Simulated assay, not measured.
Amino acid sequence: MNADQLIRDWEIFVYLQTPGKVPSTDWFPRRSIRILVPSTYDYFSRISKCPGGWEEWSPIGGPSACYRCFTNEEEWEKANNICKQYNGFLASIHSRVENDKIIDICPDSYDLWIGYNDKDVEGNWVWSDGSGVSYENWDSGEPDGKSRGIGIGDNMIRCAAQRNEGLLPPGRGWEDEECTSKKKFTCKVMLN
């Protein structure tokens, strides 16, 4: 059997493996090669202890993580790359309690970049760490495709920021903003 025949008779399947779950194989054809690729959520190594300057927190029954507020202002992509240098991502938020915790960690910041974005597909909001979407906290009228009420071109409004104005009550909602705007940000790193 030559290589061409082998390629015609076999199919190759590549899919993202969900961390901690064993993939089902009953939907694979009998003659197939299965390649498991870890999702981005599991791509970066987890750490065993929070570094200095980071705060450890765990929701009841949830996984522990380390959080850090960065007060230097960066564009969304650069902020996410800074988080990756610490084996993390811009913070993903999965509950109201976690949302409020991030506000507690960065109490004096105006707006904070979080990991929520629809950079790949307009209207399909995802977390930069690849975790599932289980919670949203959009402010009234958001996402609106505008930056502070100014429509500047739909392709630029693809990143979410946590509103955290000191004059407003805690827990104010998220807004979609131009990814090239510079904001403070919160990183999240998962613990083992």
Rank of each mutant, 00 (worst) to 15 (best):
N117K: 02
A160F: 03
G173M: 10
E75A: 15
W127C: 08
T71S: 09
A79G: 05
E178L: 14
E136R: 12
E98R: 11
P59H: 08
G151I: 08
I114Y: 04
N72R: 12
N2S: 03
L168T: 03
G52L: 13
A161M: 09
E74N: 09
I12S: 11
T186R: 01
N87W: 03
G171W: 01
L6Q: 02
G130H: 09
E55W: 02
H94P: 10
S109H: 10
S64Y: 01
P51E: 06
D154R: 15
M1P: 02
C179Y: 09
C187E: 02
R68W: 10
G132I: 14
Y43I: 07
G173N: 11
E178W: 15
G166E: 12
F89I: 01
C83T: 01
E98S: 12
S24A: 15
A65D: 09
T25E: 15
Q5E: 14
P143Q: 11
P59W: 07
C50Q: 04
F13T: 00
S131Y: 13
Q162V: 05
N124K: 15
G141H: 08
V22E: 15
Y41I: 05
S109Q: 15
S181H: 03
P29E: 07
W127L: 08
D42G: 11
W113E: 07
L16P: 06
H94L: 12
T25L: 13
E11N: 09
K188S: 07
Y67R: 07
C69T: 00
A160V: 06
K101V: 01
L90T: 03
Q162N: 02
N80V: 10
A91M: 07
C83P: 04
M156G: 04
F28K: 11
F13I: 05
I150Y: 02
M1S: 09
Y43D: 10
A3G: 05
D104P: 00
D100C: 03
K78C: 06
Q5P: 04
D139G: 05
G115W: 13
L167P: 11
W127N: 06
W125M: 06
F44W: 14
G132F: 14
N124Q: 14
P107V: 00
D144G: 05
V189N: 08
R31T: 01
P107T: 00
C159R: 04
R68E: 08
N81R: 11
N155F: 04
K184E: 15
F185D: 05
P59F: 08
K49A: 07
G20E: 15
P169D: 07
C50V: 00
C69S: 06
N2H: 07
D120L: 15
I35T: 03
G123V: 08
W138R: 05
G115T: 11
S48P: 06
N81Q: 13
C106W: 07
S131Q: 09
N99H: 15
L112A: 02
I33K: 12
L90D: 01
E77Q: 06
T40W: 13
P63N: 08
E142L: 00
C159M: 04
K188E: 03
C106F: 06
G123S: 11
K184W: 04
L167F: 08
R158W: 06
V189D: 01
H94V: 07
W113K: 10
R31G: 04
Q17F: 04
P170Q: 06
Y15I: 00
G53N: 00
R34H: 06
A91E: 06
I114K: 00
N80C: 13
V37C: 02
G88H: 12
D4K: 10
K84H: 09
K21Q: 14
E136V: 08
L6V: 00
R163E: 02
